[in-house]
Structure formats: structure tokens, C-alpha cells
Design a protein around this nucleic acid. Structure first.
Lengths: 237, 237
DNA sequence: CGCTTAATTGAACATACTCAAAATTTGTGG
DNA sequence: CCACAAATTTTGAGTATGTTCAATTAAGCG
């Protein structure tokens, strides 16, 4: 997984073919974006950018997993979104020329490309497909945020934790065994997704294991009964 | 307030000059949008469109106040946004050609214009300013939704209710006395903003009145001590 | 004026949080 | 590779916040 910088190609020849919205742009646009592009390695746990910091570019995950979180006044973290290989980060702040509105942290060792603000703006002007793609991303993010908003205010921790696991499943998929979630999270991070405390998260996961809905080994979660998770989360219809 | 249909002008001559993103478009774009535009009157409490219904146009509030809410599985409502005179509704669903993702309800007698999907798409293609405006709206909505998401998961009802009142203040402003919020909401609706029950909303408002932070007369809320509201909501920094 | 809806109050109860302590795992330097 | 420190996970018990349900009062409306 750990790569040499020289292994990372420019946007035109990027390996994340199907995954990234950048990959589906015209060669022209990709050439524009790749100019002055930087590649950065982030160790697991390292912060890529902080909420409130001023914007210096568009981030694109070349390889890795990133969490986006916001800090409440009390200092508690709430995870608002994830980004995985091929996903882009920071577009909203870039558009409004605002500071970053969430903190991005590498969830595992990750390579992240940084596209300069100037080149991004150039590409936006010349390629309406890029604008449309960004519009779609925003639109989707908003849909998810509003869904999560209703969840947090109305569902129990058990329901929210079930939905959090489903979210992780949809986002990161499973390992070869077809059961184990392909992502490593601490109990505290799971709590930060479901919007609860570490202790309650632990007890809730134990309950789901008890019922045979999930299995917990090492640090990973295995989904045994997805149907039941969906039922508990109240997503069946 | 109740108007005759004939009093509502076309988009080019719309009275909401400064308020609407449509008003700041080129005359060309406004001419496009106004073609096949319909004007509808909605009585207080009437639903303008339902969550899940298929999209048939872009709504623009000519005069009135509208709440956008989502239904949780349990049937409880959560208000996610407001729209007032000049604001537009339904753009997200229109963009992704999706069903409406929230239910829009008139909070008072309102006139709402409906712009056809076809004309909107035409204007989007011809006028990049429209696309940029929509991008900004989406971006702003997302910012608010994520903020609210963190609030709901981390703040107490008292904090949330204080913030709800501040939100109403920012959105709808005050009446002539400079104190009374220029919006009428039931206790149940206030609960639906703050993400709590009607009973708890009542008790929380009583507490804020007790402290002298707000005043409650007839059906309206008067803000006595905005600073304190801001402090309670945890927004001072 | 009577009926319906909304607001209020009370009391019991449940869910989830807090704090503290113990057990376990992980990471690091020697 | 081991030992130790640090971080994470787990468990327990007490507690607070907010919900639920039921009953009462007040307000709005035809």
C-alpha cells in the first residue's frame, strides 16, 4: 500500500478510471487540473485539512480512506462524510472561496493529490461537465446530510448504529470473505458516526452481536444478517 | 396579503427585486423562465409538494412563508429548511431529475410561482450565472444541514431551541416593534425545528421566558435578550 | 355557542450519558 | 522479540435529560 511518490501518475493517466469524477472529464480538463498538482502521503490518523483553515486546493484521494468530521462546541466530533479512493474533497469551500467546513483525517495510510485552486477554477470555466459533476456531488451530499439530520433527531442509538454499519457497507464494501467490512474504525469513531458516546457504541455493538446480526472479531465488523440491520435501521421500505 | 392572480407579474417585472436569485438574472433568462409559469395560491397549512412526489417544476415564493420538512419513519416531522418571499424550492430534485426530498407546506397564506422544468433547463444551459447561483444555494444548504446535523446530535434541547429562535430571527426578521419575530409557529412546529417533542418545547420556551431571555405573548415570540440566546446556543465564538 | 385544535402541566419512565475502574490491545524503543 | 507505556475497549453503577401518556385548560373558528 505504501507507495513511492513517483508511482502516482498525472490526472490524464490516473488509475482510478471508473471511480473518480475527474477521470470522466475530457483530456483537456485533466491536463488543466494536473498542472501544479501535488501528491501527499498521510499516515493513518493524520489530518489532511482542518475545519476553519483557509482553502488552498481541491483534494482527490488517490488511494486510501478519509473521514470528514465537524467538531461540536463541547469538543465532541461528528463524522459527516467519508471519502475513499477516487473521491474528491474540499470542493464546496473552493466554490464559495470559504474556509474548510470540516476536518479531513486519513483513516488509513493514504495518498491524496492536491489540485490547485487556480487550475480548478480554470477547468470549471472551460468544462461545463465538471460544473455539472460538482453540482451532482453537492446535491447528493445535501441529500445525505438531510437524511442523517432526521436520523439523529428521531432514531434511537441502536437504529443509528445499524444505519451507520449499513453506510459503511455501502461506502467501503466487504473483504474477500464477503462478510467483513473493508474498513477499520475505533469504537470512538463508530460513536462519532452514530452520534453517541464510545461506551454506548460499545454496548450497542455488543447487543447487535448478541442477536447474531453482526460479528466482532479483531477490530473488524462482520455483517451476518444485513436484512435485520436494515430492518432495525428502519430502512426496509 | 391575499392577492388577485392578475397582480402577479412575470419574472422580468417581478417585484422581489433584491431578494430572489431569479431577479438578478439577465432579462433573457427571466423571459425564458417566465414562459409557461404558473401562479398558485396556498392557504396556510396547505401542502405545496410532498416528499416522494415526482418533480414537475421549480417553485419560487412570490409572497409568503414556506417550511420544508422530512418525515421520520416514526411519523415525526423534522423541519429542515425555510423559504420566504423570493426564495426558490425544489431545485435539487429538478437537477437530479429525482422526486422531491422534502415536503413543502405554506406557513401562512402564500403565493408561489411554478416554473416549468423545461424552461428551467433551457435557462440553465444558456446562462451560466443561473448554474452558479444554484451551486451557491446548494452549497449553503449543505453547510446549514451539516451544522444542524452536529447540533442535533450534540446539543441539549435548551441549546437547540435557542438556536432555532436565532434561526427564525435570521430568516424572517422582526416586526415593527423590533422584538417580535415576524413568523407564526405552533409549539409543535417549534419542536419540529429543534428536534424534540411538543411538551418539551413548551417547557423549554417557558424556561427561556422565566430567565427573561424571550417573551411569549399571543402566539408570537419576542426576543428580549439576543446575546443570551446566542450564549445559550453556544454560538458566541 | 359548541366543537376542534393547540397549549399546558404532571408524573412515571426510558434511554443514553457520565464517571470511574479494570482489562485488553497496540505501538514503540531497546 | 520483548517489555513497558499509551491508547483503546470493556464493564458497572448512578444520574440526567427528555419522552410518553394522560388529563386539564385555553384559544380559534364556523
Amino acid at each position: 500500500m505504501r507507495r513511492l511518490k513517483s508511482e502516482i501518475p498525472d490526472c490524464v493517466n490516473c488509475l482510478n478510471k471508473g471511480n473518480s469524477i475527474i477521470c470522466s472529464l475530457s483530456t483537456d480538463s485533466k491536463s488543466t487540473l494536473t498542472k501544479g498538482k501535488g501528491e501527499n502521503f498521510f499516515k493513518k490518523g493524520q489530518v489532511i485539512f482542518y475545519e476553519g483553515n483557509h482553502v488552498n486546493g481541491l483534494f482527490c484521494v488517490f488511494d486510501g480512506k478519509v473521514k470528514l468530521s465537524k467538531m461540536g462546541e463541547s469538543g465532541k466530533e461528528q463524522i459527516v462524510r467519508f471519502a475513499k479512493t477516487g473521491d474528491i474533497l474540499g470542493y464546496r469551500s473552493l466554490l464559495s472561496n470559504d474556509s474548510y467546513k470540516a476536518t479531513a483525517t486519513a483513516m488509513e495510510d493514504s495518498w491524496v493529490c492536491v489540485i490547485s485552486k487556480e487550475q480548478f477554477n480554470k477547468a470549471m470555466v472551460n468544462d461545463s461537465n465538471l460544473a455539472v459533476s460538482i453540482l451532482r456531488l453537492l446535491s447528493n451530499d445535501l441529500k445525505n446530510a438531510e437524511h442523517q439530520l432526521v436520523n439523529l433527531s428521531q432514531k434511537s442509538v441502536l437504529e443509528r448504529m445499524s444505519e451507520a454499519i449499513i453506510l459503511l457497507d455501502n461506502n467501503f464494501g466487504r473483504e474477500e470473505d464477503g462478510l467483513t467490512l473493508n474498513v477499520n474504525l475505533t469504537r470512538s469513531e463508530l460513536a462519532d458516526i452514530a452520534g453517541t458516546t464510545t461506551e454506548t457504541a460499545i454496548r450497542t455493538l455488543a447487543q447487535l452481536k448478541e442477536e447474531g446480526t453482526i460479528d466482532l472479531g479483531e477490530k473488524k465488523i462482520r455483517i451476518i444478517d444485513l436484512k435485520n440491520l436494515i430492518r432495525i435501521a428502519g430502512l426496509q421500505d
